[in-house]
Computed example of a mutant assay.
Amino acid sequence: MTKNFSTFDGGTVGVTRFGYTVEFHYRNAAGDTVATVEMSDDDAAGLFEALDAITA
């Protein structure tokens, strides 16, 4: 299952879990792929925790 989030500049971030890894797929406002990042589930959890602290 992929969750998609909008960015402030009109792009999107798709987050997909594959077993013990998480993939972040970044697209610009035109829909072009900018980057794809794969990280472990633990690293992704740490990233989400850090983002929650900033945006809370």
Rank of each mutant, 00 (worst) to 15 (best):
A56V: 10
F48R: 07
V37P: 08
G46N: 11
M1P: 13
G10H: 00
T16S: 11
V15A: 03
V13M: 02
V22W: 02
V15Q: 04
G11N: 01
M1E: 13
A53D: 13
M1S: 14
H25W: 12
G46L: 10
T33E: 14
V37C: 10
M39R: 00
F18V: 11
R17L: 05
Y20D: 15
F48G: 14
F24N: 01
A44Q: 03
F48H: 09
A44G: 02
I54G: 08
T16F: 03
A53K: 06
G10V: 01
N4Y: 04
E49Y: 05
S6G: 11
D42K: 13
F18S: 12
T33G: 09
Y26G: 08
T21E: 07
A35M: 04
M39T: 01
V22P: 05
T36Q: 11
R27H: 12
T16N: 06
T12F: 05
T12I: 04
V37E: 08
A50H: 10
M1N: 14
D42E: 15
L47Q: 13
G19Y: 02
N4M: 07
D42H: 10
T21A: 06
A44F: 03
V22N: 01
T7H: 02
V37T: 12
N4L: 08
A45N: 14
T36V: 14
